[in-house]
Structure formats: C-alpha cells, structure tokens
Simulated scan of single mutants.
Amino acid sequence: MTALRVSTLSEPLRTEMARLKGAGHHLLPLGGVDGNAPLLRAWAGPGLTLGRILAPMHRTGSTTYGVRLDGLAVIDCDEDDSALVAQMEARFGQSPVHVKTPRGRHLYYLAGGVMPNLRSEGLPVDIKTGPRSYVVGPHSLRPDGGFYEPVKGLLGKDALNPLPVPASPVSDPILTGHRHVELVKEAMRMVELVNDAAELQANFAGIRDDWCVDPATMPDSELSGIAGWAWKYRLENRIYRGRDSAFPVQRRALDALRSQAIGTDAIALLVLLEDQHGHHPGKRFPLDFDAMRKAGLLNLSKLRLRAARRTPHAGGRWAVAAGGSASRRISASNLCPYKVASGQRRRGGCATHA
C-alpha cells in the first residue's frame, strides 16, 4: 500500500493535497496536540513529495497539513468578522481565495514586499509570508474538531492578486544589537494570539528575514529560545497586561480564611496583597493602613484591617514580623499603600509575603 491510499485520511483531504501539489504549491505534514506542529524537522528545504507528506500523517493519525508561503502571503484574521475582512480587502485589495478557519479567516495573495505590523495597530490580524512560514491548509481537520473550510475560490486554481507593497517603509529596520530585544517585545504582543511556540517562532522568522539588518547572523536557535520562553510565560499565566492582567489566588488560602471569624476581611486583604506584591514572593513590606484607605484600595476601618492582618498565617500566604522595618521608601503617589520612611519602625510590623 502506498501513502496515497491510506485509509486514515479522508478522500476530500487527500484530493485537495494532491491538487495543490499538482498546482506547484509546497506542503508540509502537521500534527501534534493542536494539529499545527510540523511532523518533519527539515520541512523548510526543497519541496517534499506527496508521499513524504502523507506518510507521517498516516503514522500519527493526523488530518492537518500546512501550505508553505514561499511566493504567497496570507492575511490571517483571528475573527471571522465580515467588517474586518472588508477592511482588509479595502486596504490590500480583493482576495479571490478565502478559507474559513476555526476562529477566523485566511485571505490568500501573492507575496509583496515588507508588510505592516497590523497587531501594533490594534487589529487582530497577522500577515504571514516567506518560505519559513506556513498556514494550515484547506480541508484540514484539527484534533479539537476545528475545520479549515474553503468558502471562496480555490487555491491553485484562481489567480491570486499581489499584496500591494507599501509606498514607503512602515518602520525603520531593526538594527543589529537591538534585534533580540525587539523580538522579545513582539513575543509579548503575539504569544496569546498563536496556537503554539512553533507558530510563534515561524512569525519571528518572518520578522527577522524582512525587518532585521543582517538576518543571516541571527540563528534559528535564538528565535526558538525566545519563542519557548514566551510560550512558557503564557502557559504559566504570567503575561502582564497592566490592569487587564489576572493573578492567581490559592483556593486553599481562601478555604483557611473562610473558617476564621473575620475571614471576609482577611480575604479582602489577601487579594490586595496578591495584587500589589504577588509578583515578588518573599518580599517584606510595611502595612500602612492610613495610606491604604487614602488610596481607596480598601474601605475597611483600621480596626478591621488590623484584625485581618492578625489572622493566623492567612492560610500560609503571609506572616507578620513584629517590629519589622521597611527597607525602602514607597510613595503613595504611585497608588502603593505601603508607605513608611526607610528604617522607620511601625507598630504592628511588616508583612512578609509568602
């Protein structure tokens, strides 16, 4: 039995892949938990034969493949919103090929020049292009049931329009010495909008090749390291988004506090401390209840706040060090409620965050 006759792949999927290969498009096998990780390491070299693409898909039970974007560009909309699609086509021209993705839409074009960073404009859109980039191909079915449905035209049949080249550069080139820092910034902007670290690294490759000075001196291993670091932060829910950020609170601590006579007040104090200092485990800081009330972060009376502070260990989340002193001055002007002059002792001492 040849790879073309495997029974685990649906007939429409195999037919579409064979048609795209016949039309000259380069494909690659995808798989993994999300169905979008390359199943071959050396996929970015010369075009793979259809047999080499289908064989690993058959072995792993995968029903997803990728379309490599050498010579192509895809406007990847995170939302299948008709107004957003119309906005993109008004700006970049009509796309004759649309593929509906599980959460948005792919608009296909011929590759152009350096493209704008639409994320920096607040749009839920990426432009993907280049031989080291890919998108999940039409008729793919992800393990979670997400389907890539052709809804307009056929890739490899309908003539694609070129993505217009901007009249002038949209941004200055990223100079050597600044590339790593700029990619870290891009990682924080992109990491919650991709499906895995591999997709993030593929986006970095496009930024490096198109925007960075002397891209040949920035190896793939550096891109992989940045992508892995950013993805780890995402999995650990450590992406900071200002006041839109979330922070964890241990349920066991809440359970312990609920059993106390003033447990509700202690829970309020715990949440405030996690908000202000949870990102600095083990930090010592003074509690100034006057400043806390003045800042409007808690409206409990000082008597109730003192009682909440004395709650035994707060479920293991804080301890009180009697007679403690501040190690530095913290100004109330930045809304931090723990204000005391350096070295000054406060009655009741410092709280040490666990």
Rank of each mutant, 00 (worst) to 15 (best):
L4R: 15
P12C: 06
L13I: 07
T15H: 10
M17I: 07
L20W: 03
P29S: 10
P38S: 02
L48W: 13
L48R: 15
I53K: 05
S62R: 03
T63N: 03
R68T: 04
E79D: 11
E89C: 05
Q94M: 06
H98K: 02
T101E: 01
P102K: 04
G112P: 00
S120W: 09
I127C: 00
T129L: 02
Y134N: 01
H139D: 13
R142I: 02
R142S: 08
F147W: 14
G153P: 11
G156C: 02
G156I: 01
P166A: 03
S168V: 09
V170A: 10
H178C: 06
V184R: 14
V191A: 07
I207C: 04
G225T: 12
G228N: 15
W231P: 00
R234Q: 12
E236Q: 14
D244W: 06
A246P: 00
A253W: 10
L254G: 06
D255F: 08
T264A: 15
I267T: 14
L269M: 15
D275K: 12
R284Q: 12
P286G: 00
K294P: 03
K294L: 10
A295H: 08
A295C: 14
N299M: 09
R304Y: 03
G315A: 06
G315K: 12
G315N: 10
G315L: 03
A321G: 04
G324I: 05
